[in-house]
Structure formats: structure tokens, C-alpha cells
């Protein structure tokens, strides 16, 4: 069983603000899921390569060409900003600010 501290730490790493009740709920659910996937331990994988790509592709590259967005696309992207000034998105700084 995971400890509350462990679950708290994971939530912090995942950038999720969870309530005490949620932390407790996820503590139980995560523990049972980790128990379930723990059965992989019984599989002998000595000398087995991990899968990196299922159909055998490796190092697929292409030219990095800049494509111009249409005015429409431009408008659509800007219109999605939760907070903006003209065409620049705005966000709270990493330094504490009063709002």
C-alpha cells in the first residue's frame, strides 16, 4: 500500500492539486492497480530487449520546414488563449504576484 506521503509527492510531480479525500481515494486505487501490474515480476525477461517500436521503425526524420499559418489558423490559435493582450498570451509569473 502506498503511503499518503508518496501519493502527495506523485500529485505534486504531476502538477495536480488534489484534496485530502482525493489523495486517500487514489492511494487505495493506485495501490490496487500497482498490485495488479506487479504480476509482471513473475515473467522471466532475462536477455529480452525492451520494445521501442512495434513495427520495427527506427530514426524516422524529415526536413524541418517552416509552414506559414493562414490568417484563419492564426486567429483560431490566438482566440484560444485563456488570458491575452492583443496577440500575446498572458500568464501569472513564476514569482508570486497579487491579483
Amino acid at each position: 500500500m502506498l503511503s499518503t506521503e508518496e501519493v502527495k509527492k506523485v500529485a505534486q510531480l504531476a502538477r495536480l492539486n488534489l484534496s485530502e479525500e482525493e489523495l486517500e481515494l487514489y492511494r487505495g486505487q493506485l495501490s490496487s492497480i500497482l498490485d495488479y501490474v506487479g504480476q509482471l515480476k513473475e515473467v522471466n525477461t532475462d536477455g529480452v530487449e525492451p520494445t521501442s517500436q512495434v513495427t520495427g521503425l527506427a530514426n524516422v526524420t524529415r526536413e524541418d520546414i517552416v509552414e506559414k499559418a493562414s490568417v484563419d489558423e492564426h486567429e483560431r490559435i490566438i482566440s484560444q488563449f485563456p488570458a491575452k493582450r492583443k496577440w500575446i498570451f498572458e500568464s501569472t509569473g513564476s514569482v508570486h504576484l497579487s491579483h
Partner: peptide, 20 residues
């Protein structure tokens, strides 16, 4: 959790081997 330091080999790397 599975990708965090100390658990990667036990979960992710192991699962990718069983995937093979």
C-alpha cells in the same frame, strides 16, 4: 509514479520487455 526515480526499471522497462 511508474516513471519516477527508482521505479522506472521495475515498471516501465519491465513492461516494455514483456511487450516484446
Amino acid at each position: 509514479y511508474a516513471l519516477s526515480a527508482g521505479y522506472y526499471d521495475a515498471y516501465y522497462a519491465k513492461a516494455q520487455k514483456v511487450r516484446t
